[in-house]
């Protein structure tokens, strides 16, 4: 078989990539779309964050210490936790721990299954596998968590009379919120399910292209991609379910009514995109 090698991108060539930004920035300027500042800031943030992560990951990969990998996973989880709460328009203080717990289980269960059972890695915190796979699962859990939590609580707030009607008919809290949970899961999972259904036809996903560019056989890349998509589906389903159920207690009074103090005063931020 032909040997495939990865072509590195030099920093001067990388700088050239920024020249392409003239197209989106030009369109935003020409049509006076009020997103120029935000887009520019996003590009700067992306550059700084990825360069920082690149430097850090080089260090982590060289050291390959389970402690360093675990520390990095904790950082990723905490950042995702804050992002979900900011994005879903809920108050930070009340939900940091329940959302973190949902994210932790939603990420760790499929991650360790992927590493331990599918890849049969003796070390579940092997930096080369644990960090990128956790990142893909967590990125999708983040998006799902934002959509799911926002849809769930705003749905109850919007249809509060119907919710109270259920309570008045003798429903326990978990029974009264079930239709809202169902709607939230549909809203949260729909983009991922659509992505899974069209994968390979519409877009080549990040992991697959990464593995191919990294020099692996395309069939190996596809097997990785299938496994990671299943892991993502498991992760997002667990995350959306756990974050909703774990946030119930701090969100409702002892009488079962919605505590409106859970909503942050500022509008939630837009949903961020993350792909496997």
């Amino acid at each position: 078989m032909m040997a495939i090698r990865t072509v590195d991108i030099g920093f001067p060539q990388l700088a050239l990539a920024y020249a392409l930004l003239i197209i989106p920035f030009g369109l935003l300027l020409w049509y006076r779309i009020p997103m120029l500042g935000r887009t520019a800031l996003a590009v700067v943030r992306m550059t700084v964050q990825l360069l920082f992560v690149g430097v850090y990951l080089q260090f982590v990969f060289r050291a390959n210490s389970p402690w360093l990998v675990a520390a990095w996973l904790v950082v990723m989880l905490v950042v995702a936790d804050f992002s979900i709460l900011r994005g879903s328009g809920l108050r930070l203080g009340r939900f940091l721990l329940p959302v973190l717990a949902g994210l932790l289980v939603g990420t760790i269960v499929p991650l360790f299954f992927f590493l331990g059972v599918i890849l049969q890695q003796p070390n579940l915190l092997e930096a080369q596998y644990a960090i990128p796979i956790a990142g893909m699962i967590l990125g999708n859990c983040l998006r799902t968590g934002i959509i799911g939590l926002r849809d769930f609580y705003s749905g109850i707030r919007t249809s509060e009379k119907a919710f109270l009607h259920s309570l008045g008919q003798g429903a326990r809290l978990h029974e009264a919120v079930r239709p809202f949970y169902r709607n939230a899961v549909v809203a949260a999972l729909a983009p991922s399910v659509a992505a899974i259904a069209t994968i390979g036809l519409v877009a080549l996903p990040g992991m697959m292209t990464g593995v191919i560019i990294g020099g692996a056989n395309p069939m190996t890349a596809i097997k990785y991609q299938i496994a990671i998509m299943i892991a993502i589906l498991v992760g997002i389903t667990l995350t959306i379910t756990l974050t909703i159920w774990l946030t119930l207690k701090p969100s409702f009074t002892a009488y079962g009514t919605l505590d409106h103090a859970i909503f942050a005063k500022n509008k939630p931020r837009g949903t961020r995109r993350a792909r496997g």
Partner: peptide, 24 residues
């Protein structure tokens, strides 16, 4: 209520729904 919010579905669904609750 003065303007009952009965949820969604058909009238039959609305009448049957509370019987799915453990209490009923």
């Amino acid at each position: 209520a003065q303007e009952p919010e009965l949820g969604d579905g058909t009238v039959r669904d609305v009448l049957e729904r509370p019987f799915a609750y453990h209490a009923n």
